[in-house]
């Protein structure tokens, strides 16, 4: 008796799933945001943060400019994978760079560390065709932390 009831309940629950949910998914015009979109936004923010700090601290420009360019190159690759054009024109707003060079470096380091963790999570979850690029982005952000020491 109990078993029959459980089977009936299962059948009842399964019918609507096969009826529309599963089959209709292929036709869904809005599959949701690409999981790499937050990483793309973050790469643009990191690039802008380094560029702004290089302007505020010209003595650090030699160190920060190549890092800003690396983040921009990451953003370009991520945009290609996501299938969106790389936003041109105004850079994302970033908090003003600290006036003290050591504090500016520390703030950039913190951003790189958070970025490394986000990229690590994305790499672990990514399909094979995206994993190698994400791995290089993780490694690049780790080396940025080292270079900013």
């Amino acid at each position: 008796m109990l078993r029959a009831g459980a089977l009936l309940a299962l059948g009842g629950a399964a019918a609507p799933l096969t009826g529309c949910g599963l089959l209709d998914r292929d036709d869904d015009p809005n599959p949701g945001p690409d999981p790499l979109t937050p990483l793309l936004d973050e790469a643009l923010r990191l690039a802008a943060g380094h560029r702004d700090a290089a302007v505020a601290h010209p003595a650090l420009a030699g160190l920060l400019t190549p890092i800003a360019e690396a983040h921009h190159a990451h953003a370009a690759e991520l945009a290609r994978l996501v299938g969106v054009p790389l936003p041109s024109g105004s850079a994302p707003a970033t908090p003003a760079a600290p006036g003290d060079p050591a504090a500016a470096r520390a703030a950039l380091r913190a951003g790189e560390r958070a970025g490394r963790e986000a990229a690590t999570r994305a790499c672990a979850a990514a399909p094979a065709e995206r994993a190698a690029l994400l791995a290089s982005i993780v490694a690049a952000r780790a080396t940025h932390v080292e270079a900013l020491k």
Partner: peptide, 9 residues
């Protein structure tokens, strides 16, 4: 310099 490359590996 630079100390880093854009895409390690």
């Amino acid at each position: 310099t630079p100390l880093t490359v854009p895409f390690p590996g």
